[in-house]
């Protein structure tokens, strides 16, 4: 009855029965570290990010990395095929993952990915949206809220301009995109609960 780390950032959903909880955790950490580094590199390229205090840069990344990864890896969740692709390259059906213990969180991730991918955004639009996800002045621990807020507003303005330019006949896309932000917060909270459950019962 061991807990599984049913996260596509892992190479596979299967757990080596001979590995300790700590060993499983270390292997998992090894899998997601490159992706986290890429999020940091992405953040550095957001104009204005490096002008924020180092404290606020860390706070934004700590709070937002999971949400950025959800956006970045939304395509791993295939709603049509009802499969999830793990970093090891294999796809696993929703039914298989549910049999291994995946519950509402998986369903919510599939729903989110379906809604986001359904908007058909370009790479540039997705990248700007990802920047908006990361630069949020209401994250906990921000010391200079005004600076983060100013950067956030600039990014939202650019995103709106880009979406309006690229989709002149689809004015609802920008609104739909902003509605994904609270979805991401909700997924972030669910993810934290999942991590807590694993930490308590590895």
């Amino acid at each position: 009855n061991r807990m599984h780390l049913l996260c596509p950032m892992n190479t596979s959903p299967h757990v080596n029965p001979h590995k300790s909880g700590h060993g499983i955790w270390e292997e998992f950490s090894h899998s997601f570290t490159p992706a986290v580094r890429e999020v940091v590199e992405f953040a550095k390229r957001i104009p204005g990010f490096r002008d924020l205090s180092q404290h606020d840069q860390v706070s934004l990344l700590k709070a937002g990395t999971f949400e950025v990864l959800v956006v970045r890896f939304a395509s791993l969740f295939d709603v049509k095929d009802r499969t999830v692709k793990f970093l090891g390259g294999n796809k696993y059906s929703v039914e298989t993952l549910q049999a291994m213990g995946a519950g509402d969180f998986l369903t919510s991730m599939m729903d989110f990915s379906d809604k986001l991918m359904g908007l058909g955004l370009s790479e540039e639009e997705m990248s700007l949206f990802t920047a908006v996800v990361l630069i949020s002045a209401d994250r906990s621990g921000i010391e200079n809220v005004n600076s983060v807020e100013a950067l956030q507003e600039t990014l939202i303005r650019h995103l709106r301009g880009l979406i309006t330019k690229n989709h002149p006949n689809e004015s609802a896309i920008f609104t739909k995109l902003l509605l994904r932000l609270p979805d991401l917060r909700s997924l972030n909270n669910m993810h934290s609960e999942q991590l807590l459950a694993f930490k308590v019962h590895p």
Binding site: S29, F32, T33, V36, R37, V40, E41, K44, R50, Q54, Q57, V58, L61, K62, A63, T65, H191, S192, L195, L196, K199, V200
Partner: peptide
């Protein structure tokens, strides 16, 4: 467990990745 990011070791990875860039900056 109130700080899942720290529990994941995320903060350490983030700080190192950020610091790497700072070290590359010219004096």
């Amino acid at each position: 467990f109130s700080d899942p990011a720290s529990n994941l070791g995320l903060e350490d990875i983030i700080r190192k990745a950020l610091m790497g860039n700072l070290e590359e900056r010219p004096e």
